[in-house]
Design a binder for these strands. Structure first.
Lengths: 357, 357
DNA sequence: CTGAAAGCGCTTACAG
DNA sequence: CTGAAAGCGCTTACAG
């Protein structure tokens, strides 16, 4: 896309006095100025190899001289593509999505695509509205977080031939492609480690599981581990609460007021874990001496607090990048859309006590 | 925009078996189905009050029945508007931009606009490329961070009649509208407080000032306060470094190795301040007993570390929201584009010691 | 209040 | 390798 390289410099400025009235040059102007047809100009811009060098040079000179930039709408309409990818995430305010989205955008840009963004605030209704909105804006493909939503959404997208990719989850058997990790297995592994450390009284502060398959899978993973070890998965105290620091603090204090204090509180993500840590401080409990805490995600916060939080590291940036690449491959029909699994890894830190020592 | 309300439900599904081949219905299909002209259908969708209820109802029924959604490219081309606003920020990974952008997007959505996002990584060249890219994608207006950039950029935008708004700065005399706060006066006020507390030996860890007018203004604000108090603004040790926690830590240790240890290290933002705090811990210095630290922004991090960081609170969410509203007002020619000033406020916390007590 | 028709600025078979 | 021309699906004066 040569036209993408047009400098701001001299040309843009030259154009100015010639057309102070916003008469942006069109393909036609370029064609006339170069003495060729509009078809040839179009080819120079889109498939230069199909034009002989001699004329191509003349055309490109005219393009620069006039400071020509293709009209977006016309191009979209004729080509039926916008080179735009939409992403709908719960919120940009959580570092994991900000980070993933940043990497997603960078990868998109590297391939000549632009990012259209919307947020759902974890509300299915808002998400559906945003999906329609991005589709109406001509998104060539869509990135969504998680996969648990009304089937009508997927039908809507399929009817319009708009590729979707679900990130943050890995569902090999899904008919839609996914790029992510196994939330359930990850939490199960962490819980196993917690149990290995001698903990038997486990509580959980979970994100809201309704409409959030990642949160639900994490909770299920904890239950898996309990069952694996002959513990009663139904006996775990669980508090579900939106992912906010303050909520983690409140939930933690509530859990500690019960008759049997847990020896460890596992949290649905690091934000809740940091809140739990604060809650512990507020009621004078020492972590990990009095109670252990674990998180999920491994955001910066997890290593900044004292003690640092034992958590699951999730490769957010890589997930964003690979989601972008996979989605573009599908949009450009270069690939059928197989799911990609990324690995999480346990980060043992000060907030989890090994009761065996 | 009624068409925006089309449900996913029955209609989308009904359409399916009729056209398993992706033959998306067009305006023409609707017109034929309702027995009116395309002009009338278009009016029903865009200015319903100009169509008599009787026919409007018939048309809307056809719209729903066919599951019609306007073609984006055609609409853009004919209307010469995309209802899309572009934003280019340094990075989504800094919480302040993530938060501001989130609010910006929400406000955009409330007004029927969609957000196109790109990031510059604080690189002017990348930013210029992104500006061209978003313009090429038909952005109706642009949000940029700060105002210090090549004048050719503004000429380019003006030649294309694309409104720009600079956020994070407040420049009343600028010919472009700005929505933000006075970085220089804010830092000056905080530095004055620091001096009032008895500090005389002040050092600063600044962001890179080249090409970043916010960072430069903050440093200038510190110098202002020093001059105000008869101190030598040229004598302040200053280290400029990119906004990363680790850099703050390194810079802090470097500053502490000098002959005359500062009694306070003021940081260009909270990220650097948190890094400085970590640096202090690493070399066994106690904050604020051995040395004080201040930040800028008041992100969550500032209240999570121990001690909490004295900083300047900046209303990021409000800034994002008001920037969106101001920009749309300009795009829709409802307002001339006056700048809006927001206020920052000093948050005194544990990391700053009052030497007088 | 409604319709016929031009026009928006490209892309892309189809010829040559 | 290049051009004439149709067509993409809307919006919007202009008539009536």
């Amino acid at each position: 896309m040569m036209w993408d390289m047009l400098a701001f410099g001299p040309h843009a400025r030259d154009g100015n006095w010639i057309s102070n009235l916003p008469s942006v040059p069109t393909l036609d102007d370029v064609a006339r100025s170069a003495g060729v047809s509009t078809a040839t100009v179009s080819r120079c811009l889109n498939s230069p190899e199909r034009v002989v060098e001699h004329t191509r040079k003349r055309v490109m000179a005219a393009v620069e001289q006039l400071g020509y930039t293709p009209n977006f709408g016309a191009r979209v309409m004729a080509a039926k593509r916008t080179f735009t990818i939409g992403a709908i995430i719960p919120t940009m305010e959580n570092a994991i999505f900000a980070r993933g989205l940043q990497a997603f955008q960078e990868a998109l840009h590297a391939r000549g695509y632009t990012l259209l963004v919307a947020s759902s605030a974890y509300q299915p209704k808002i998400e559906e509205e945003q999906i329609r909105s991005l589709v109406a804006r001509g998104a060539d493909g869509l990135l969504l977080i998680g996969h648990d939503r009304d089937p009508a959404v997927y039908e809507y997208l399929r009817a319009r031939s708009i590729p979707v990719l679900s990130a943050w989850v890995y569902l090999p058997d899904c008919d839609q492609p996914t790029v992510g990790f196994d939330n359930r297995a990850s939490m199960r592994a962490l819980a196993q480690k917690v149990i290995d450390f001698g903990h038997r009284s486990i509580a959980m502060i979970s994100g809201i599981t309704e409409g959030n398959d990642r949160a639900a899978a994490r909770l299920a993973g904890l239950r898996d581990a309990l069952s694996d070890n002959g513990l009663d998965p139904g006996a775990v105290p669980v508090i579900e609460t939106p992912y906010e620091i303050e909520n983690g603090s409140v939930a933690f204090r509530t859990l500690m007021q019960g008759d049997t204090r847990p020896s460890v509180v596992m949290c649905g993500n690091d934000v809740l874990a940091v809140g739990a840590l604060r809650g512990a401080r507020e009621i004078g409990l020492s972590v990990p001496d009095d109670v252990s805490i674990t998180g999920f995600d491994d955001i910066e916060l997890a290593r900044i607090v004292e003690p640092q939080i034992t958590t699951l590291h999730v490769p957010h940036r890589e997930m964003g990048r690979r989601a972008a690449e996979a989605l573009i491959d599908i949009v450009e029909k270069r690939n059928s859309g197989a799911s990609i699994e990324l690995q999480s890894s346990i980060q043992l830190r000060g907030s989890l006590r090994d009761l065996r020592v």
